[in-house]
């Protein structure tokens, strides 16, 4: 792990804006931000691990619990008016996840998020970086099945 983290960090060495980019790459690699990574990143940036955590814990996208895929269901005003709560209920039931939790098999994390800018196709969700709009509960579950492997 340490080796891989160092490689990620090195990729950012000639950039001015470092920390967010490094954390993104680490989360892409491991599915979350491991504690060990915080220490290594801190050392490399000559800041304390606490300072890295201060930043990372601010952003709702960064996660400290591992999950293979992250479902982010939009519950912004437009999606909410157009039925996002049904989508959320369906996903919770199907995978037995709570809001902010991870399914038992570690496959999905469920997050309820604010507007994701897909108000022209509500309700919408993101699975990892892919966005899906005009959802119905059935369609949402179908999409997620595709991530089950």
């Amino acid at each position: 792990m340490e080796e891989r983290i160092r490689e990620i960090i090195l990729k950012h060495s000639d950039r001015d804006a470092k920390l967010l980019g490094i954390l993104h790459d680490i989360q892409d690699e491991f599915g979350y931000i491991p504690r060990e990574a915080i220490d290594i990143v801190a050392e490399w940036l000559s800041i304390s691990p606490g300072e890295v955590y201060d930043t990372a814990s601010f952003y709702s996208f960064f996660r400290f619990k591992k999950a293979k895929h992250v479902i982010r269901v939009c519950n912004g005003i437009v999606c909410n008016l157009k039925g996002s709560e049904e989508i959320i209920r369906a996903i919770k039931e199907r995978y037995g996840i709570k809001e902010g939790g991870v399914s038992e098999d570690g496959l999905f994390a469920l997050e309820i998020v604010e507007c994701i800018g897909r108000c022209d196709g509500p309700p919408a969700m993101l699975v990892d970086d892919d966005s899906y709009g005009n959802l119905t509960p059935q369609r949402a579950l179908e999409i997620l099945r595709g991530y089950e492997e």
Partner: peptide
């Protein structure tokens, strides 16, 4: 210049923690 006490989270759930909890 110790940078031990930091903030965790945001909004009404913001808390002061030491290091990474």
């Amino acid at each position: 210049e110790n940078h031990v006490l930091v903030r965790r989270g945001r909004g009404a759930r913001i808390e002061i923690v030491a290091g990474v909890n």
